[in-house]
Design a protein around this nucleic acid. Structure first.
Lengths: 200, 200
DNA sequence: GCGATATTGTATCAATCGGTACAGAGTTTA
DNA sequence: TAAACTCTGTACCGATTGATACAATATCGC
């Protein structure tokens, strides 16, 4: 009885929100049922693997989003630092200015990391790699590029944690503008020198 | 039948580990029983409030630790930056160089935050406040001190998240040495100027 | 219109959840 | 020694967990 044919693509964002709110263990099938409006039958039809497959699908979806709006722009970096700016925009949007947590980071802090180990690790390796490749295209040396990339990604993750803890998105906003200031969009030589100085 | 009289103080670190590994919802009484070796009877004898009281006690214990080894040293800052260095030492020890997660941060990323809202918020406000007070004693202006404090605390939290995700403590270590480099222990004027430069 | 397929709700399963009750063994106090 | 108190193990509670089975219905290809 498919009244409104539900698309898997429409369900996944809802699933993502449930996992974000309650974590992997706290996201029970009852809660998922409430939020998606889908009965157990439908849920197991779309995700025969049950909860684990749901979470895996969410992680795949997140990966696709970041590939499109974060990693891909970084790959197109032209040396002006524009892609860094675009990335910070995308990230600010994605994390709702600190109101939305990073599901991958949240999974990493519990034993859900062991369940989705490769997906979790890949998320961050791809992010840091894409970022440091862009920085190298901006003229940074290899070691500096990696250090600065790690610095940026950890700063964003930490900002999410502290913002949530204090229930104050301003912490996230301040972190983002601090990162932005490290990479002035105008590409004069000082831009990189400044970031190199703050890198170590 | 009290064979070995268990002390609440001995149980709490074990409880902390269980919560760290599995999160609040994932820390079931069976798992707590397994790890502590205490039956339900004993557990509810020590913590009549059940799981919630166990977690609250753990948070209180963590708060006490940080008060002693992090907040208190910062309060004794003499202008040389020595207390910052001591804090970074203590934090590195506490988080096992990135192998041990921050339970407060982990709680903050799920709905456990709503349950322990004030404890979670206080942990970070006290940390940031103590740190910025120390920075002011080192000569920083109010706004700079707050910005740098937020920067440091978020960097530490982010480093824990990324270290766990990549299963690579080196990320944590690098972040800590980067923070250390921002605050050279030797107190010449350049030290603070440098940190002010990187602050915004 | 007819059969195949896709989607759904309900009922049900064993296992486990957090929590309670309580008797009994040990220790301390009187 | 006797009563009071502290600690512990076991059994048990109703509720909920993730998962399965399956019949019923709607949609689509023909």
């Amino acid at each position: 009885m498919p009244r409104f044919i539900a698309e898997k693509a429409d369900i996944i964002p809802v699933l993502a929100d449930v996992f974000r709110e309650h974590g992997y263990e706290g996201a029970t099938l009852s809660r998922i049922h409430e939020r998606t409006g889908l009965g157990r039958g439908s849920l197991y039809h779309f995700f025969p693997g049950g909860k684990e497959e749901m979470a895996a699908s969410v992680l795949t979806d997140i990966d696709a989003w970041f590939a499109q709006y974060v990693f891909e722009p970084l790959r197109r970096e032209d040396g002006t630092g524009k892609s860094i700016d675009q990335m910070l925009d995308a990230v600010t949007r994605y994390f709702g200015s600190g109101n939305r947590i990073c599901l991958v980071g949240a999974f990493a802090l519990t034993d859900a990391r062991d369940r989705f180990g490769t997906a979790v690790a890949q998320y961050f390796t791809r992010w840091i790699d894409a970022l440091s490749a862009a920085l190298r295209r901006m003229g940074a040396s290899g070691s500096i590029a990696i250090a600065v990339s790690e610095d940026i990604v950890t700063a964003i993750q930490g900002a999410i944690v502290v913002s949530r803890s204090l229930d104050d998105p301003a912490v996230f906003e301040r972190t983002m503008s601090r990162l932005r200031a490290k990479f002035p969009l105008v590409a004069h030589d000082d831009a990189l020198t400044s970031s190199e100085r703050t890198a170590i």
